[in-house]
Computed example of a mutant assay.
Amino acid sequence: MKLSYECGPCFLRQAREAMDLSTDDEILKMEIMNELFIFLSDNFKFGANSNGTGSAMHQLIKEKTGCSDPYYTQKVEGNEIALKLLPEVKKILNEDESLENYVKVAITGNILDFGAFTLEDDIEGVIRQALNKNLAVKDIEEFEESLKTHDKVLYLVDNVGEIVFDKLLLSKIKEYGLDITIAVKSEPIINDACRQDALDAGLDEYGEIVEIGCGTVGYVDSKISEEFRKIFNEHKFVISKGMGNYEGLTEVDLSYKDVYFLLCAKCDTISRDIGVNLQDMLLLKK
C-alpha cells in the first residue's frame, strides 16, 4: 500500500514508543527525532511505500540507540496475554469446531499488535470483545475449497502472542492434509514473530519454519531474501496474517495465487482500502 496522510501521526507515535523502550537518554532521543523529521521530509510523499517507510524509521532507531529489540518486553507481555486467554478460546472452539470459528480465533489474535495499538490500550479487553463478534468479511467457502484443492500452503505469521492463536488454526489446516510452511521475520521489528518465537510457541509441530530474510514492517518485496522469494513463488496458496502483510502484498502480483488475508482492520487507511469498518475482522480472498 501507499502512504496516506494518516500514516504520519502513526509513524511518529511508533517512533516515540520505540525510542522510549530503547533508551532513557533524552538528548539522544531529541537527536533521533530530528533525524526522523529530516527523513520524513524527504520520504513522506504520495506514492511512497508505507511498509518501507516505517521499516526504515524503526531501523534508524535501532541503529542509533543500539537496542536491537525494543519491544522485547512487550512481546513477552503479548505471549502472557494470549496464554491467559487460551483456555477461554479453546472452550469456544470446543463448542463450535467449524473452520470459520478457527479462522475467527486466529484473526482475533491479530489484535495483539503493538504497532497499531498504544502500549496503554486494554488489548486483553479488546480481544475478549472480538471473540464475541462475527467476521465482517468471510470468504470461508473459497478458503475451504483452497484447503481441499492445494497440497501445500505458505502461512505468513504476524505478531508474537498472536501466533499462540495461529497454532490452533494450523492444527485445523493440518486436518486437510496440507504441507505447511510458516514464514517468520529474520530480525526483530516491533512485536513481530521471529524463528525462536515460533519455536517457543510450538508452531514447528505443524510445519517447517522459514525466515523471510529481513526484519521489515510487514512484507516488503524488495527486502526479502532470494531463498524466500523462491519459496513464495513456489506456493500457489498463501495465508497472510495481519495488516502489515496485507499492505505489502497488495503491491505484489498475486494473480497466479490463492491468497487469503486474515486480519483485524485497526486503522482508517486499511479500513477504507478494503471497504470495511474500523475494528472489523475479515477473511478476505484477494
Rank of each mutant, 00 (worst) to 15 (best):
F11V: 04
L12E: 08
Q14K: 11
D24C: 15
I27E: 14
K29C: 08
L36F: 12
N43L: 12
N49A: 10
G52I: 14
E63G: 02
K64A: 10
G66E: 04
P70W: 06
Y72L: 07
T73H: 13
A82D: 14
K84Q: 14
E88S: 14
I92G: 00
L93C: 06
E97L: 10
Y102H: 06
V103M: 02
A106F: 03
D113E: 06
G115Y: 03
T118D: 15
L119N: 08
R128G: 10
N132L: 11
L135D: 13
A136I: 12
I140F: 11
E145G: 04
S146F: 02
V153T: 01
L156Y: 01
I163V: 13
V164Y: 03
K167R: 02
K167S: 10
L170H: 01
K172E: 08
P188M: 12
I189N: 11
D192I: 13
C194S: 12
A201N: 00
G202M: 12
L203E: 01
E208W: 07
V210D: 13
E211A: 05
G213P: 03
D221W: 10
N233A: 06
F237D: 08
V238T: 08
S240V: 08
M243A: 11
G248Q: 01
T250K: 00
E251S: 02
V252D: 01
D253G: 03
L254W: 02
Y256G: 13
V259S: 08
L263A: 08
L263H: 10
S271D: 00
I274C: 03
N277A: 13
L282N: 15
L282S: 10
